[in-house]
Nucleic acid binder design. Structure first.
Lengths: 244, 244
DNA sequence: GAGTAAAGGTCTGGGTTCATACCAATTTTA
DNA sequence: TAAAATTGGTATGAACCCAGACCTTTACTC
């Protein structure tokens, strides 16, 4: 008799070993970073050699990605000292394009990201609240919150919101957490762009953001978690019906 | 004036674009699956073509990985119909090898995985508890629990434990969750092997496992989360000192 | 104005990976 | 016993990716 593989596990555990081609992955990462406002309109990307090192690809490959971004109009490049690549991607508002053209796989991934988010982001907030935060860190968090609340146009608000959530993740000081939140925010961003959503209740959302920040700064993990959970639940409720 | 990239975020968000060489990633995934008991000793792996499709690599690349596993003595292969690749890797007991030879990066990753685990596994348990589970799913969970409690040798217990946690993740029905738990369990497994740990308190651990299962089967998300959190905290407390 | 520094642009040789066939061994089945 | 089916084994040419060196443009410094 030979042993059986554990029922059901193999299918779930063995995953595609890498997304796609390296240069596509670079395009994806950089475009995501720009869309989420990590590199907002007008900011300048690091030099090619540095970016290549950070993404652990050769400069040749990174340059292919850059060429694609340039061609797509997301960035512009100038040569010479003091030159570099600046972001020209303007934050987009939610468009009226129907979500009908979305593939079932993507739709499933979106729904998954909502479930995952409800675990990961409250966890990140709680973790951040449980750590002793440096003064600069506290200031950074407060600044990220202010950016969200003062953003006027919806597109700017969207980017500031992503940055806010990413900032909390970085404060948790856990690389895996940052990666998870980045992934989730990217999916969220896609959903919000693809869905002709009623102007979300920004005031409501901002109150929840503020509550999360208060709890983190006060060092109250459970409270931070609960506040973020509520925030995720409200957002998810809004979206779940529209993509289902 | 040009916009600045959001302070601190770029460094955290831009991550290496892939784990380099596809065949190494395949080796890693397969070896992990075997070590964690997803494919226990004596089980037979899926045919090469199927594995290649699942990992989304070419068969040539997958075969390179297989050759490495074969050479390392983890698997054996026979040809012809009914042939295939069987697992020959015997589960290892925690060895007395000191953890001193571990690189600082790995050590940091280990500590990170403990923080991350405290968020992800309780979240997975809660999510699973919040879903209506099919009868086979309930049976699978119960079976996984029984495997842990009845395992005699420490090495078998270790594998059954990994399988138990992975099973909960799959019941949460979230691919991202499964991936996160797999990553965390892999790190945990490394730590437990590298550290000459006192025989952990298996009875205590089993009681906690049982509590988690009860909560999940009863459909009590908060209780499941709390039980799993306690379990993670206890394990982490044991490990944190030894690797720090 | 000459020189240096910092950035993007280009080239080359070699290793990896891919897709797609086709071959060989072995068991099942007709 | 012969044919079919399933599985691992092999081969080939194209596309991709890498490391490193070198060139060009531009701004700052002396």
């Amino acid at each position: 008799m030979t042993a059986d593989p554990a029922a059901g596990l193999p299918e779930a555990v063995l995953r595609p070993v890498r997304g796609h081609h390296a240069f596509e992955a670079c395009v994806e990462q950089l475009a995501t970073a720009m869309r989420l406002g990590v590199y907002p309109l007008g900011s300048v990307l690091p030099p090619e050699r540095e970016l290549a090192a950070r993404l652990q690809v050769s400069r040749a490959t990174l340059r292919e990605a850059m060429a694609a971004l340039r061609q797509a109009g997301l960035v512009e490049t100038t040569r010479g000292r003091g030159g570099g690549t600046v972001v020209t991607l303007k934050p987009r508002s939610p468009s009226a394009r129907a979500a009908a053209r979305v593939s079932p796989e993507r739709r499933a991934d979106w729904l998954d990201s909502l479930d995952f988010r409800r675990v990961i982001e409250p966890g990140a907030a709680a973790l951040a609240a449980s750590l002793p935060l440096s003064e600069p860190a506290r200031a950074q968090l407060q600044l990220a919150l202010d950016d969200v609340t003062t953003a006027r146009r919806p597109a700017d608000h969207r980017q500031a919101d992503s940055r806010f959530h990413l900032t909390i993740a970085t404060l948790s000081a856990s690389p895996r957490m940052v990666e998870a939140v980045t992934s989730v925010q990217s999916a969220l961003h896609e959903m919000l762009l693809a869905i002709p959503v009623l102007e979300t209740n920004i005031a409501h959302s901002d109150r929840q953001h503020a509550a999360v920040v208060r709890a983190i700064l006060a060092g109250r993990p459970e409270r931070a978690r609960a506040a973020m959970e509520e925030h995720c639940d409200d957002t998810a409720a809004l979206l779940r019906g529209l993509v289902g």
